[in-house]
């Protein structure tokens, strides 16, 4: 494995014959043509379909590198150290590791975020929305054709206490640009009956979470809707395939609220297959902190992702002070 010592910085290069700029980040180099994204590093190179690359990049940017590892595929990705980020190639791929062809660079979060956001902006054409399901967006392919910055810089919902409370994240409705999704047309839109005595309106609150989710315009994008200290409810609507393979640095939990998702679970560090988890409405499952997972949702479904946001956890688990599975019985 190679590991650079200097603090990497980003560089932008002139557009190529297809109209796309290329980018350097330390010793990594990113370029694209009509169909593919190319990643080069001192000991290797990699190619991904441009649409898959942009869908993964969109999540990494929007989620601020999320919890743990965001694998774009089985070769390239990022590790969040909450202040810095590892950009890697082959680090979590057994073959690359054995051949010593893997490469990692640790980068200040603002630097990598700025470069990734610039790639996302330049490579996303008008009409392609990396957050949307494949059935609900245009093509990512072809020569450079405009941009879609409105779609790739959407507001990410992060409730401070609970959606719908005064001063907190608002409800979704037709008027604020959130129509009911085509696959959730049968979801009841009735709101709870809330009777707050004068002076208690900020504390007596309730909303229809299922209706709220039915109006989500994006897929595979957990958003915070309620908070209990560091416990975060991060529900999301899922359709087709999770565009990244999420490697855990802590356990997270899934509560399937509707329909069905199948999860492929692999060893976090090697990619060795460990299990398939089939989740139906009402099912609850933990994703342990030593795995990586990718979900498949044949019909748009509602998934409650439950996270513990404590910054202490990665160190507690990596040092062995806490087991990789959240429950021991």
């Amino acid at each position: 494995m190679t590991l650079t010592g200097a603090t990497p910085h980003g560089e932008v290069h002139e557009p190529n014959e297809f109209g796309y700029k290329s980018f350097s980040l330390g010793e990594f180099h990113f370029s694209r043509d009509e169909y593919f994204a190319y990643v080069r590093w001192p000991t290797g190179h990699h190619v991904m379909s441009a649409d898959a690359f942009l869908r993964a990049l969109q999540r990494d940017v929007a989620w601020e590198f999320f919890y743990g590892i965001v694998n774009f595929d089985g070769v390239v990705g990022t590790v969040n150290h909450y202040g810095t980020v590892d950009l890697f190639a082959g680090r979590y791929n057994d073959a690359y590791r054995r051949a010593e062809l893997d490469h990692v660079e640790n980068i200040e979060t603002p630097v990598i975020k700025a470069t990734f956001a610039a790639i996302l902006s330049d490579w996303t054409n008008e009409g392609f929305d990396p957050f949307a399901s494949p059935e609900e967006t245009g093509s990512a392919f072809g020569p450079k054709n405009g941009d879609n910055d409105a779609a790739i810089t959407r507001h990410r919902v992060t409730a401070q206490r609970m959606v719908s409370l005064p001063g907190d994240e608002p409800l979704r409705n037709d008027d604020n640009g959130h129509p009911v999704n085509r696959m959730f047309a049968d979801v009841d839109q009735d709101e709870p009956e809330v009777y707050a005595e004068p002076g208690f309106e900020a504390e007596v609150g309730s909303f229809n979470l299922f209706a709220y989710l039915s109006r989500s315009p994006v897929t595979w994008n957990p958003s915070v809707v309620s908070v209990c200290r560091e416990s975060l409810y991060c529900p999301t609507t899922e359709e087709y395939i999770l565009p990244i393979i999420h490697g855990n640095d802590r356990a997270e939990w899934f509560v399937q609220l509707s329909d069905e998702i199948t999860w492929d679970v692999e060893d976090r560090d090697t990619g060795r297959k460990r299990a398939k988890v089939v989740m139906k409405a009402g099912d609850v499952a933990a994703m342990p902190s030593d795995i990586r997972h990718q979900g498949y949702s044949p019909k748009r479904s509602m998934l409650l992702v439950w996270e513990n946001a404590s910054l202490k956890i990665p160190q507690l688990i990596s040092s062995g002070q806490f087991p990789t599975q959240p429950v021991d019985f």
């Binding site: 009841d188 809330v194 009777y195 504390e203 229809n208 979470l209 309620s226 409810y233």
Partner: peptide, 13 residues
């Protein structure tokens, strides 16, 4: 302080 009548899918503080 008040009351909430909630049905399936409703999230209450």
């Amino acid at each position: 302080m008040g009351r909430v009548l909630a049905r399936r899918g409703h999230l209450t503080l």
